[in-house]
Design a binder for these strands. Structure first.
Lengths: 351, 351
DNA sequence: GCCCCATCTGAGATCGATTGCGATGGCTAA
DNA sequence: TTAGCCATCGCAATCGATCTCAGATGGGGC
């Protein structure tokens, strides 16, 4: 192997010189254009392959006014800590990477942390990508609304709010939470804590489902109570611990996410109580973790693989000029041991 | 708010016309160059901000011959299935995203699936990024060697092989595996299965540690045995199930990764045996899962956060022209219940 | 009043690939 | 022989920002 490697990366004009043609012809040959004679086309392609020539995608993108890449942005406005380690996000990321790669696009990952002054408009304006997937609304509903007014190829994973103009994909948060809380009520639980921060749209909708369940099962002794908690494991644990310490009485916890619910389980166990005997716990997401926890977590399943597919499908249709509506997927209650319920008849089985 | 938005995105020359100056001046003003008068500079910046102008990064990158982006490539040559959902990868990805974002760079995610004909040289040649992080060597040792010969800004997470010319970061796989297997031997286990595919460099090194432990504890009745298994949960489960079915006798399993080990636990439990009573299981990675499994998994911890930091640090030094050596981090045995060992004295405590 | 220098600004080349349009050459048909 | 046509190919403009170099402007010193 004695290929001579150039120090400076080869350009198309270099290949052209070697082949004794112009850059135009090389460009056409590599693109498989019928405008260049078949024999010459193969000759040029062979030469390019031998020399290890690869088209410079920056130049190509500038000329073609596209990037062949999708931005995936993760706003973390609600988080107090920086690292991107939430299993929900990483699972979603993996699925998105699959879908996007499969379509021959690159995936540009953007973590958005405070301060977040018009990050979205900047991202759009920079022309780094041909479309944007935002994972989670976080605190950015207003920014999304503003951007969506003039930028079409944008899809968002999250809750669907009334009078919202951007395109979302997500599960039916209200129905999912409703099922979860009715499940707890059906098991005889009377004082169910909502653990989470309803100012985040998705969580707000789950809180709505929580209240709806309480309203429907309007009995004496049913006392809704919210304990604010951010989405990270540590802050949720701390919030739960503090609440237990404040001598609040309760017999169930509905965590706004699995990470929150699992943290609650830890805090409850650490306080000497038992899950589900003393306190039943239900989460939301069904991250891979949930099934393997101790005890396995009852939760509301969001099919992230399907969600990622829908997001990417809608995005590409939008990139093609179509104007797609939002999509809501059904949320499914998965009953496991942490709620103490039987797994076959969610929400209906009374002891 | 009645900003008039242009349909076609603003260019620098548009701002220039509005400000009554040339594009050169706008460029300098936005770059904060002292060459342009302070008053005019601020005027131009204000105008640009009002109009929501953002520099087109494709054009800028072409001119500056850089991309302000890092490629993160994940070769999945050893995988039979496509999806990128392995917790090890997603955890690593999250940490890499943190480090890279923090330096003001974008992260370009590349999933590499078979057929993988010179993907690395193509990636390098395309000039999509200023540097490349490859997560896991998979089956691509040769490709990495070839590329590293002429391309410097490349770092690899994985095992450090003898006479290897590319720069790796990873834990001491041999020592880690050695500690894990000596731990099992110390607990009285005599027939320890190695579950994994040693043709992947990292796994090969772990197998080496496995054999070394057997050699050191050279007693009658110690029988090493390898059961090939790929890195996915399903294939590992299947391999373990098949082995159990073939009536092989064993009292311990060393899984080449946590995903493999957890699958082994599932297979063993499904076959009516108990972990750790009948079979002790140890994994490798200490993914977040491991601690919360049932039973919690004894494993060899790799500090991925630190690993990601080192990868990115070395990469940037290489991008700066430095020629950095590989780095090996210590691997730490974390004793939990799946091996039935006590957690304080790893590898020494005999019953 | 003149010249020089410091300070600022703009024209134009450049990064590397794509593509409309015109040019070239060979060949057929009148 | 010449017009006409088709198959190929190259010139040059273009995408949008950056930066060199040269030119413009104005103020101050003599």
């Amino acid at each position: 192997m004695n290929k001579k490697r150039r120090e400076t990366p080869a350009r198309m004009s270099d290949i052209a010189r070697l082949a004794g043609v112009s850059a135009s012809t090389v460009s056409r040959a590599l693109a498989g254009s019928p405008l260049v004679a078949a024999a010459k086309r193969e000759e040029i392609r062979r030469l390019a392959r031998e020399r290890g020539y690869v088209i410079n995608s920056t130049a190509r993108n500038l000329r073609l006014q596209r990037t062949q890449a999708i931005s995936v942005a993760i706003p973390l406005g609600h988080e107090t800590s920086q690292p991107l380690t939430d299993p929900f996000f990483t699972e979603m990321l993996g699925h998105l990477a699959d879908c996007i790669t499969q379509r021959g696009y690159g995936m540009f990952l953007q973590k958005i942390v405070p301060p977040m002054d018009d990050w979205l408009l900047r991202l759009i304006g920079s022309h780094k990508s041909d479309g944007i997937v935002v994972v989670g609304q976080s605190t950015e509903h207003a920014a999304l609304e503003e951007a969506a007014a003039s930028y079409k190829p944008l899809v968002v994973w999250g809750g669907h709010l009334p009078r919202q103009s951007y395109c979302t994909v997500g599960t039916d948060n209200v129905a999912g939470a409703l099922a979860a809380v009715e499940h707890l009520i059906g098991l005889g639980r009377r004082r169910i804590i909502f653990l989470g921060d309803p100012s985040v749209p998705e969580i707000g909708l789950r809180y709505e489902g929580y209240r709806l369940a309480h309203k429907r099962a309007d009995r004496v002794g049913l006392q809704p109570h919210i304990v604010p908690a951010h989405l990270t494991a540590d802050t949720a644990y701390e919030a739960m611990r503090a609440f237990i310490g404040s001598a609040g009485s309760f017999d169930a916890v509905f965590g706004a996410s699995d990470v929150i619910a699992l943290s609650a389980v830890r805090a409850i166990t650490a306080a000497g109580m038992s899950v589900p005997r003393d306190v039943a716990v239900v989460g939301y997401d069904d991250i891979a973790f949930a099934a393997h926890g101790n005890p396995p977590l009852t939760t509301v399943r969001q099919d992230l693989q399907r969600g990622a597919h829908m997001l990417v499908d809608l995005l590409f249709r939008r990139m093609g000029g179509e104007d797609t509506p939002s999509a809501t997927m059904p949320a499914e209650l998965i009953v496991r041991e942490s709620s103490g319920g039987r797994s076959d008849l969610p929400g209906v089985n009374r002891p």
